[in-house]
């Protein structure tokens, strides 16, 4: 499960949907895997506007990965204006969001504390019936 996934998911419990603390889910005891992927600058430039920057940045911090800038970069910060080459920020984003996956561990809701298990890259969001 690529880390970018966590930009789009939240706690499966209805009661948590409107709670700001339910997003993002927090990886715990996470076993990370890095799979090299071809750099796709067009995709990263186009996904940047829809990233919840604070959430993405905190994920990187919680997982001990290279720290992202405090505030969201601009599109112009991703490609070097003179060389037209991807900048280090773009490469860091690629490494964090596209190349890094959670293969095992837990995803924890910051509001209700429910733990969703991740096994072999598949996160289990099925709730016991009393929590649905």
């Amino acid at each position: 499960m690529k880390l970018l996934t966590l930009n789009f998911l939240t706690c499966a419990r209805k009661a948590c949907k409107q709670e700001p603390s339910a997003f993002p889910l927090h990886p715990r005891e996470a076993e990370l895997e890095r799979v090299e992927m071809e750099l796709n600058p067009e995709f990263l430039v186009n996904v940047l506007p829809r990233l919840e920057w604070k959430a993405i940045r905190s994920l990187g911090e919680e997982l001990g990965l290279p720290t992202l800038p405090e505030t969201a970069p601009e599109e112009s910060d991703l490609m070097d204006a003179t060389t037209k080459e991807p900048t280090q920020t773009l490469r860091d984003l690629h490494a964090l969001l596209v190349e890094t996956s959670v293969s095992n561990g837990k995803l924890v809701c910051g509001h209700c504390g429910h733990e969703y298990a991740v096994k072999e890259g598949i996160a289990n969001f099925l709730l016991p019936s009393h929590l649905v």
């Binding site: 969001l97 996956s101 099925l126």
Partner: peptide, 22 residues
């Protein structure tokens, strides 16, 4: 591994784990 990112297939009931409006 060449196209744009495939994120995951989550073991979930329909759209229950998706954030609003994404």
């Amino acid at each position: 591994n060449k196209a744009a990112p495939f994120l995951t297939v989550a073991n979930a009931d329909l759209t229950s784990a998706l954030k609003d409006g994404e």
